[in-house]
Design a protein around this nucleic acid. Structure first.
Lengths: 238, 238
DNA sequence: CGATGACTGCTGGAGCCCCAACTTTGCGAT
DNA sequence: ATCGCAAAGTTGGGGCTCCAGCAGTCATCG
């Protein structure tokens, strides 16, 4: 007693506990607003707010006209970071190896390097780069977005060239020696929510990847994948 | 016209645009509920809901008695994945090198391997492991949680031993040859929210790390860091 | 001149209500 | 036995109101 916690939290915590300990398995229905008000002796506002919070956490999903249900958590798709994988937007080969039919389309255009890209490619003055957007789909559903920036003179001209950045650069006498990936999580931008068909409350993993030739960065890309469906695995020899 | 979008979204989108394009810089005050109702000609409920959505996205922060403000986005702390870094809970050395006073404490105890840990360490039968929880703090503030599991016979007995897993294993004739890290993002568990003092709507990066000796996993740990303050960088020679 | 206290504005919790759109269910008619 | 339809239940959007607690501001008092 003397718990001055907001009452909606009592509801949230109780339901969350039931979900995490398995009392409420994936797919199980959550009591409706009306039932919650009775069960927990709270007002409609509190019941409603509790459901919204849980939905925002991605634990439950609401279906209009039907009810709220414990969200099915599909197994995380594993993205293996093989040392020699170098597709412009990575992981496609990896997804294919997991037996998923992956398709991708892309759109290439010249673009001015913004401050962020300029920094990553160590450009000191305004430079026009070849910017390519990739959209990856598995069984029709969008899986992954990527935006790649590279100097105009190295840009891919054929579908074949597009498959290996390392080979393409090598043909220009540039030997890529290192790949650096930086991963963090953030709220999706509206365009990303649309493109990846993200549910509310789902964050994305954002990977900034840069290919280096010695001490010179030669290509950089932003890769965005849904945070609730992907894990990225890095394997490093010691 | 004919925009049948919910009205609160109009407010959300307008404010979000102003934040992302810099019209509202970090720290700038957001109009109050009362002001929003007048400005956008919406009810109090819609204004309030818009603010809640933006706060949930981590774009603004509400201060009771004062107002809502554009959230300061501190630069992401970069966690560099050096190839030979092998502290049981990683990144501490890395944080130190960035000039942050990092302290850590830990608690070790024997524990039964759960199904998940058993799978990761390829254990077929119930085994008792040494389980160590680490809490890392920078300038007093919690930064990172880690839980490490290793066979009882290899457990560290001194502070010194605790500093290098690789050296410790080597003393037992085990040569660690590979480190595998798998990173994904998820909603923090309540205990993690507390321990890391997370704001609402902040996700965590969860890293599962396993040290391998040849084809045998010998240690595995779970590392949890706030998703809004950390990025993890992996550097791979090609 | 400085400290205290009243007043105002703001957030966050909570309650209740109305409605459109959708799903589910059960009943009645064919 | 099946079809169609109406009724009931549910979500999500929206509205209004009250209140506690906090943060400034400003005026008054010692």
């Amino acid at each position: 007693m003397a718990t001055s916690d907001p009452v909606y939290l009592r509801v949230v915590e109780d339901i969350r506990r039931q979900i995490t300990d398995g009392t409420l398995p994936p797919g199980a229905p959550i009591p409706s607003r009306a039932q919650l008000t009775r069960k927990y002796q709270v007002g409609e506002t509190a019941a409603r707010h509790a459901l919204r919070v849980l939905a925002g956490e991605g634990l439950i999903i609401g279906r209009v006209g039907s009810g709220h249900y414990v969200r099915e958590r599909p197994d995380l798709t594993s993205l293996h970071r093989w040392r020699f994988l170098d597709h412009p937007a990575p992981f496609a080969a990896d997804l294919q190896s997991q037996g998923r039919r992956v398709t991708w389309d892309w759109h290439s255009e010249p673009a001015e390097a913004g401050p962020d890209i300029a920094r990553r490619l160590r450009l000191t003055e305004a430079t026009t780069l070849s910017k390519t957007r990739y959209v990856y789909r598995g069984d029709g559903k969008p899986l992954q977005l990527a935006t790649s920036y590279e100097p105009m003179e190295f840009a891919a001209h054929s579908e074949e060239e597009r498959r290996s950045l390392v080979a393409r650069m090598y043909a220009h006498g540039i030997k890529i020696t290192e790949v650096v990936e930086s991963v963090h999580t953030r709220v999706p931008r509206p365009a990303e929510s649309d493109a990846l068909a993200l549910a509310a409350g789902v964050h994305v993993l954002h990977i900034e990847r840069t290919h280096w030739a010695g001490d010179r960065p030669v290509e950089t890309s932003d890769i965005v994948v849904p945070g609730d469906r992907f894990r990225i695995t890095y394997s490093m020899p010691v």
